[in-house]
């Protein structure tokens, strides 16, 4: 297992290097630079040139890249151009907030969608199945900003159950903090539930057609045992992969949801940094998202044997 882990981590190194080069070059390829974005239309060309020189943006690109890479390797992600804050603590603080929302939402979405999807597969073609498919398709097609605003209007404004501004709730702790997270979690939960539900339903239907299921039923096993011990373990593997992908994608940024609910998460930090061409923050965030993705995939792969009997063998 340790060899497997070391091997997988070693394989991630070239991926991260390629990503670091790509994000470095992409940021510099797009028009606009941090000096211009920072000073705005009040600046003079001389002031912009001076700031660029100070930022090292007048150096050749390879020099800029290797200086940045060297700093990263020593744990120095630099400082934000916009605010002067250290990038690494800034990213970690924001990541914690996003991760709390994403992990909770995906966990709850899975907890709700998996039994519902399996039940729908078990009752394939029934009114329950059809309505489950219809609802999941509807949820899948909802844009997150629209759903977020509707939830905000109903639960935040009309009913007044939860704080409208995440920034205030997050800073107060206790129940207020939990209350501030409920609406963004609910938004993500509803959207992601649709995809998980459809996936588990489809794979369960496929598994239920297998001969070993017929065999298990012929042995006189209860439907509960058939579904839990035989169908679920075989049907869950693709859903597990999907959950991993969803987690990876969402941890990379839920900027829209964070903006609607005023949550200071990683996604909002990244989007704002792109607007202001805050190179150290953008490069740091992308690299962090890539590392998260790699580690998450590794974790998913490691847990496969737990769920998939074929892999365990």
């Amino acid at each position: 297992m340790i060899r497997f882990l070391v091997g997988r981590l070693a394989m991630a190194v070239p991926t991260l290097i390629i990503i670091s080069i790509a994000v470095f070059l992409m940021m510099r390829a797009i028009p606009g630079d941090p000096a211009t974005a920072m000073l705005g239309d009040l600046a003079t060309p001389e002031m912009i040139a001076r700031l660029k020189a100070r930022m090292g943006l007048d150096q050749p690109l390879p020099v800029q890249y290797f200086v940045w890479l060297g700093d990263i390797l020593t744990g120095d992600f630099g400082r934000s151009i916009s605010t002067g804050d250290l990038v690494l603590p800034l990213m970690l603080e924001r990541f914690q907030i996003s991760a709390l929302i994403v992990v909770t939402a995906v966990f709850l979405a899975s907890a709700v969608a998996i039994p519902l999807g399996m039940f729908a597969a078990w009752r394939q073609g029934s009114a329950w199945d059809l309505s489950t498919v219809a609802v999941s398709t509807f949820l899948l097609s909802l844009p997150s900003f629209w759903l977020g605003l509707i939830i905000l209007m109903i639960f935040g404004l009309r009913l007044g159950w939860f704080p409208v501004l995440g920034t205030i709730g997050m800073s107060e702790g206790g129940w207020t903090k939990i209350a501030a997270l409920i609406m963004p979690v609910l938004t993500l939960l509803l959207i992601e539930m649709g995809a998980i539900l459809r996936m588990i339903r489809a794979s369960t239907i496929e598994v239920l057609r297998q001969e070993y299921i017929t065999h298990a039923r012929a042995k006189g096993l209860s439907e509960w045992t058939v579904m839990w011990r035989h169908a679920f373990r075989n049907a869950f593997a693709p859903t597990w992969t999907l959950i991993g992908l969803i987690l990876g994608a969402l941890l990379g940024g839920i900027a829209v949801v964070e903006t609607v609910f005023t949550i200071p998460g990683l996604g909002r930090l990244l989007v704002q940094a792109i607007y202001t061409r805050d190179y150290p923050v953008v490069q740091g965030c992308i690299l962090m998202i890539a590392v998260t993705y790699v580690l998450l995939n590794l974790l998913i792969d490691m847990l496969y044997p737990v769920f998939d009997p074929k892999v365990a063998r």
Binding site: G156, L157, G160, V164, L165, T167, I168, V260, P264, R268
Partner: peptide
């Protein structure tokens, strides 16, 4: 209070949070 989204800001004043 930092509220980047104008819709959220409107909702916040109507709910009495700003």
């Amino acid at each position: 209070v930092v509220v980047p989204d104008s819709n959220a800001a409107e909702t916040a004043i109507l709910s009495g949070q700003v």
